[in-house]
Design a protein around this nucleic acid. Structure first.
Length: 567
RNA sequence: GCGCCUGUAGCUCAGGGGAUAGAGCACCUGCCUUCUAAGCAGGGAGUCGCAGGUUCGAUUCCUGCCAGGCGCGCCA
């Protein structure tokens, strides 16, 4: 069965199949019409009196049959075969819900699965065999990384982890913009600061980068090379300075991301692609396919033929006949596909949404299917200080860098904070609030649950409990408090949760899940003392606590946040 | 003008064609001689931006409007 890799999924599929069979029986007897399209979605109701599982399928069918939900539900229940299944009872409720009440055998199996899978619990094989290239951050190497980069880094890394857990083979890639205009401006800016550091007269160009980091680079450059670069003729000096600047800036980016707990699989150089002649190839292919034309001295791509709202220039009408950015970007994405990835995901900033159509038009022009590229837009981060908006501009100099953010709030809080919000919603980041490093931060709520469990085990060890009692030794039926049942159900949902969140590309939902797990654990902790008089009960609860710890640890690992043993 | 995103509790935000709309923070009341009180239990707090439409049922889907943010280059 496809993707049925958790006990919860198996149980849901079993119930769905039994409903489908019941409907078929009803159809044979003419109680329901033949042409009935249905999708039986099994849900977990929020209220326990609504059963362990529920579905609204009868109501959806009632619409097609022009009957009402309760009637259809009644027909289904009449034909429903629940023998040889954990289903004890089925209720018809409300306007036509089916509520299923199950015995605990499935929970016992689900818990045993967590125990045996341990650190890999949460994995499924839903997208086994898919090779995904996830490109994100890809910040220009012309300045320090900012909080938007930090947001994209959190979202991309988490999404990559979740996709991996769902069975995809994922490659995290950073596209290095080490060619093009902005690298020349970077070199010019550094050159000016370099000359100035040597006491020479030099004027910063108007579009130059003003930040102090350029001055720091200049001082280092003087340390390393003295004034030797001044003796070079201008073009060579420019190139040498550019190379130095890029190397240093990229090393800086890597360091910052490493502090964030993020390591990319590949750093793909734009320049290497440019040097390989891949650009000309793009232009040739599009030309050969008759998808280009000349106008106003420029070469245009008929991107409107593929859904873009206007045609795009490929080769400018300037003296050098230089290519626009579309060409290298197409070459880059073509290269990705040629490397054997069957699906590409780009995470981009909101200023790029107009870019989606032209890029996918280009890829279609090159003969690739539209679906091979998926672009996720991560919305803006606005920095606020109390009520005041902090302007961010690379040239102006005043912005909060990713480094500063990490120093102020730490990677755990930063990542958690960015992931809490849905990626496409705007985010106001209150620096003053974040700097408080207060215990009010929701990240502590989840981490605290993990630390509490670790503490129980330290204590249990000291008191000589069997802390390694697994499913075969534990008396499972001693776990019967409502808080224990809620916790077990929550833990059983983890693999499916991971898969759904990764499929929807909404990492924020895993945060919600973690908060819920932490919440039911804290309730359990308060209501049910783990280490008590009754050894059997204690060991059963230790077992459950261990399972909760596994899930919390696995989830924290997926979002790149540490799981502390104590706090 | 066109395009994208957003509008839900005092604040920051989840959710989502159905059964009583949620969380964190803030506020109020209880709970530590026992595994970590960064916790638990309870309480107050909402015309789900406005108006139409589809539906047995809309806060959720569709259309229009209002408000806020962002983008619309032969820059990348």
């Amino acid at each position: 069965m496809q993707g049925a890799s958790s006990v919860l999924m198996e149980v849901k599929q079993d119930i769905a199949q039994r409903i489908t069979k019941a409907v078929e029986k009803a159809q044979e007897k003419g109680e329901l019409p033949q042409d009935l399209s249905m999708e039986v979605k099994i849900e977990i109701p929020s209220r326990s009196e609504q059963g362990d599982f529920a579905t609204g399928a009868p109501m959806a069918m009632a619409r097609q049959v022009k009957s009402n939900g309760r009637t259809v539900a009644g027909i289904i229940v009449k034909h429903l075969d629940i023998d040889d299944s954990p289903v004890l009872r089925v209720d018809i409720a409300g306007p036509g819900f089916l509520n299923f009440f199950l015995d605990r055998s499935w929970l016992e199996r689900a818990m045993a699965r967590i125990w045996s899978e341990g650190p890999s619990y949460g994995r499924s094989d839903y997208c086994r065999g898919r090779k995904v290239l996830l490109e994100f951050v890809s910040a220009n190497p012309t300045g320090p990384m900012n909080v938007v980069n930090a947001r994209a880094a959190a979202v991309g890394d988490c999404l990559a982890s979740l996709l991996e857990m769902s069975g995809c083979q994922v490659s995290r890639e950073f596209y290095v913009n080490d060619a093009g205009n902005q690298t020349d401006i970077l070199a010019d800016s550094l050159e000016v600061r370099y000359m100035q550091a040597l006491g020479q007269d030099a004027q910063m160009p108007e579009n130059g980068y003003q930040g102090d980091y350029i001055k720091d680079l200049a001082n280092d450059l003087v340390q390393e090379k003295g004034s030797s670069l001044c003796d070079l003729p201008h073009p060579q000096r420019h190139d040498a300075i550019k190379e130095y600047a890029l190397e240093r800036m990229i090393a800086w980016q890597k360091r910052t991301l490493l502090d964030y707990g993020l390591e990319f699989d590949t750093w793909f150089s734009e320049k290497s692609l440019r040097d390989s002649g891949a650009h000309n190839h793009i232009i040739e292919v599009l030309k050969a396919k008759g998808l280009t034309y000349e106008k106003d001295g420029a070469l245009w791509f008929k991107s409107t033929e593929f859904g873009d709202d206007k045609d795009r220039v490929l080769v400018k009408s300037d003296q050098q006949g230089s290519a626009t950015y579309i060409v290298p970007d197409l070459a880059y994405h073509k290269n990705k596909l040629e490397r054997g990835f069957d699906h590409l995901i780009d995470i981009l900033g909101p200023d790029h949404h107009g870019y989606i159509n032209r890029l996918s038009a280009g890829l279609m022009g090159l003969g690739y299917p539209k679906e091979c590229l998926e672009i996720l837009i991560v919305q803006t981060v606005r920095l606020v200080k109390g009520k005041e908006l902090v302007k961010m501009s690379k040239r102006g100099g005043e912005f909060i860098t990713m480094d500063e953010l990490l120093e102020d709030v730490g990677k755990d809080a930063a990542r958690f904070f960015f992931l809490m919000r849905s990626p496409e919603s705007h985010l106001d980041f209150d620096i003053d609030l974040a700097r408080l490093q207060s215990n009010e931060n929701p990240v502590y709520y989840v981490q605290y649950a993990h630390a509490r469990i670790a503490s129980i085990f330290r204590q249990a060890n000291q008191e000589g409990f069997n802390v390694a009692a697994g499913p075969s030794e534990v008396q499972f039926n001693l776990l019967k408090d409502p808080s224990e049942l809620s916790l077990m159900k929550m833990l059983a949902a983890f693999p499916e949760e991971v898969h759904e969140v990764s499929k929807a590309r909404e990492p924020n939902r895993i945060i919600k899940y973690m908060m819920d797990v932490a919440s039911v654990f804290h309730t359990f902790y308060t209501k049910c003392r783990v280490l008590g008089e009754d050894r059997q009960v204690s060991e059963a609860r230790l077992y459950l606590a261990r399972l909760a710890q596994i899930v919390i640890a696995n989830a924290l690992r997926a979002i790149g946040v540490s799981a502390p043993e104590s706090m």
